[in-house]
Design a protein around this nucleic acid. Structure first.
Lengths: 296, 296
DNA sequence: AATTTGTTTTTTATATAAAAAGAGCATTCA
DNA sequence: TGAATGCTCTTTTTATATAAAAAACAAATT
């Protein structure tokens, strides 16, 4: 049966909203709450019923009143808050880059389903999705084989990435000065400085910032066929580097500084300077990844 | 339940083999037949049992002997010979580019399942696959919306295609003279000439030749992330132009001639000449497609 | 009259079940 | 002894069933 992760997340979100209000405060109408939470009214009604059951609110006709502030243990546990597909994807990637899977390994979907505690359908969907990332291959007998993070894979990935990003850089520097992308760039530049200032504590979260930065640059040439490249980059940064913490601090610090130089290059408006900063950064990223593969 | 299209195709293939032999001829062993047909022994055994049931062969211990030549009505009908996924894909694309679907249309999976006579799982798989081609988009409520063959779509598609193919051309002309790609190019060049000679009768099948030609050129820079682009190109040529027969003869004839010029350019070894022929052809292809969209 | 709520109908996501096809092993035959 | 066969066990594919969530519609309220 379908998971109710959406209900649980919405319920917790509603609690957050109530925490901002107080006892005796009337709640907004169902359609209004649905719009705020970004879900259907059906889900909102389920949440309201649950809140009334826990005596956090009271429902009398169409008058909904808050009875008390939510407590910590009113919140639903983190266990099933993640959509199933995300959970499977996370576990699968962890398995794929982990020690239980070597390149060329034939995947047993039934076995994975048992390991992850989900049905084979969920595994099937996940495998189908990842096949587009070039990390898996379908054999003639219908089975899946892992291809692994090989040197060829990284070469092809970065070739493609450079091809795309160089062109994006050329377009980016030529943007008119009032283009919204410039302010977004300044914003992300500030984030980079904030990151550097608090580097020791935050350097774990760098993959997200990295992903958003490159996505911003690439958005100068909107193209829906880039999704796969960005997806696979993000996945690899997120999962592969999770198993390879060696030199993580150095790696992230260097990338941060290169990003800042890259941003300067873009802002200078000089195509050759921007291109050069981009080239330098992508070159580093490529060799970093190649090194990390050989290290494992 | 699973379709037995594989069994049916194997059965017909086996009949073809028997048609080549004759009465009284002994059949090869099960493993040998499995290897020949490219299926498992389980399937071969099912085929052999069916052949014995129809009294085309007789099985006595491990001696399998042909009793008679297969007749026309021994063959299984064309109805279910196609794998289910292929059938769904074919019907879906026909629906997508046909008159029942306008850009922005919200897809009703249940309804499509009924129309195509398959289960929702099959539709789901198909939608997931096509979302990678950029023709569909997933809304926040989990529904699919068609994006249609818009002008932006074609622009993005061809931008990407040109980016990739220009680079492939540069690499192609620089290949060593004994590279196997050169002989493949000569082979496909011959096919083009054969096509031209018999143009009136064969011009319908051009999309396949076109696909193979561009795939060959692109293979000069092996990259697994190209699959999507090539896939979507192929799909569009195959299905979109099926609904748009206007000027088909002119369109195909012109493309054929441009291909030949393109091949000459590659063979000349002069990068700028090859690039120019490529540019010209891709430019024509782009405007042809743009025109065909507006015509509909 | 425009919202809001109560209720019903659709649609999607996921697990389960069953057929088809593959893989492996013991036995048999040449 | 080595390959072929018979049989059994897995794995994959597909349909079906069911809960969750969305959408649609009718009745009620301000």
């Amino acid at each position: 049966m379908k998971t109710n992760a959406l209900f649980k997340r919405s319920y917790n979100q509603a609690l957050d909203m109530l925490a901002g209000a107080g006892e005796g405060v009337p709640l907004p109408s169902e359609p209004a709450m649905a719009a705020t939470l970004g879900v259907s009214r059906t889900t909102v009604r389920a949440v309201l019923t649950a809140l009334a059951m826990r005596e956090i609110i009271t429902i009398d006709g169409r008058a909904k009143t808050q009875l008390r502030l939510p407590k910590r243990n009113d919140y639903l546990a983190d266990a099933d808050l993640e959509p199933l597909a995300d959970m499977v994807e996370r576990k699968f990637m962890a398995w794929l880059v982990g020690p239980d899977c070597s390149p060329g390994h034939v995947i047993n979907g039934l076995d994975l389903a048992r390991q992850f505690g989900v049905s084979t359908s969920a595994i099937r969907d996940c495998l189908n999705k990842f096949s587009h990332f070039g990390l898996l291959e379908r054999q003639s007998n219908g089975r899946w084989r892992t291809l692994g993070l090989t040197v060829e894979f990284v070469a092809e990935l970065f070739d493609m990435r450079e091809l795309i990003e160089f062109r994006a850089v050329d377009r980016f520097v030529a943007l008119s000065k009032d283009d919204p992308l410039w302010s977004e760039l300044s914003l992300i530049e500030k984030e980079h400085h904030a990151f550097l200032d608090d580097f020791d504590r935050r350097n774990r979260d760098f993959s997200d910032l990295d992903h958003r930065f490159h996505k911003l640059v690439d958005s100068a040439v909107p193209n829906r066929f880039l999704g796969n490249i960005q997806g696979v980059m993000s996945v690899i940064f997120h999962y592969h580097y999770q198993w390879n913490k060696k030199d993580e601090v150095d790696r992230n610090h260097r990338a941060l500084c290169e990003h800042l130089a890259y941003i300067d290059g873009l802002k200078s408006g000089d195509p050759s300077r921007a291109r050069e900063a981009c080239r330098l950064h992508l070159h580093t990223a490529r060799s970093t990844m190649l090194t990390s593969i050989n290290v494992i």
